[in-house]
């Protein structure tokens, strides 16, 4: 494994922050080494400085994408942490459906949900499964589910909806697995009825995202933890702009908005907390 020098650490950390918003401090040199060493070697670089320069000069951004894929943490699972999903099922969705159902019976109920750090798609598919289980007949609804992530590799897997048996065994119970996935060789693939409910696209949360429009429910879990306080504040201010006035925000269960963004107030429901605009 190629070692990283303190000087390189500074330059490469700055570069990673520029391309992804991810803040890696000096204490995390092992992260650079374990995650970037093989990319450096594969592209014929003998140092991280060389890798960074090569990546910066590559107009096709192939190396940059590889670095983002390697440095982002795609630790996710189906129904990771039951709290937010119970919250969605028993509180947020029913209330949002009430709020959005038009008075005249002819119009469809429009609801937009965004998984802002979708990773390999498990969170958004879990949301889609909950919606399908709760509403059954979706013909009266117009529910749009968007998943975004900065990593091309993660988005590619999410779009394909195929998970190996280790990914699938974590968090999913047998009944749900049999109902919404089909065995595909040694892996499992999400069925079309769920796949067709969702969309995935690449997005860097450091960049403006007003073009995505307004959302009724936003999940932004366990991604801001990789950002500096300043970047977190910027992110949650942008999220506040993208959230409907009566919309709901769900963040990671160990995250907090105290001292980060004062535009949200926390509300408690059973074991979970959600946020609304103040």
């Amino acid at each position: 494994m190629i070692k990283i020098s303190p000087d390189e650490l500074k330059v490469v950390a700055q570069y990673i922050h520029d391309i992804s918003g991810i803040h890696l401090d000096q204490s995390k040199s092992y992260l650079f080494e374990t995650r970037l060493s093989s990319i450096a070697e594969a592209s014929g670089c003998s140092s991280y400085r060389e890798l960074q320069q090569k990546a910066k000069q590559d107009p096709a951004k192939k190396l940059e994408r590889a670095i983002i894929d390697a440095i982002t943490t795609n630790e996710t699972l189906f129904f990771r942490d039951k709290g937010p999903f119970e919250l969605l099922q028993h509180k947020l969705l029913p209330e949002m459906i009430d709020a959005r159902t038009p008075k005249s019976g002819m119009m469809k109920t429009n609801i937009r949900i965004w998984s802002a750090a979708a990773s390999t798609g498990q969170e958004l598919y879990s949301i889609a499964i909950i919606i399908k289980e709760l509403l059954r007949d979706l013909s009266k609804y117009n529910i749009s589910l968007l998943g975004t992530d900065i990593s091309d590799a993660a988005i590619a897997q999410a779009s394909y909806g195929k998970y190996n048996k280790f990914e699938i065994e974590r968090g999913l119970d047998r009944a749900v697995l049999q109902k919404y996935f089909s065995l595909f060789g040694d892996s499992w693939k999400i069925k079309d009825e769920i796949r067709s409910m969702v969309n995935f696209r690449k997005l860097n949360l450091m960049q403006p995202f007003t073009a995505l429009g307004k959302f009724d429910i936003i999940f932004c879990r366990n991604v801001a933890i990789y950002f500096t306080l300043q970047d977190r504040t910027k992110l949650f201010n942008k999220i506040a702009d993208s959230l409907a006035d009566d919309g709901y925000l769900v963040i990671g269960s160990t995250e907090s908005l105290t001292g980060v963004c004062s535009r949200f107030v926390p509300k408690r429901h059973l074991r979970a907390i959600f946020y609304q605009k103040s």
């Binding site: 942490d81 709290g83 269960s253 160990t254 995250e255 907090s256 908005l257 105290t258 107030v265 926390p266 408690r268 074991r271 979970a272 907390i273």
Partner: peptide, 16 residues
């Protein structure tokens, strides 16, 4: 994580 979450959530509500 569950333990930390419960502590953080209590603090979050108290601060609010």
């Amino acid at each position: 994580e569950a333990e930390a979450a419960s502590t953080i959530q209590n603090l979050e509500m108290t601060v609010a």
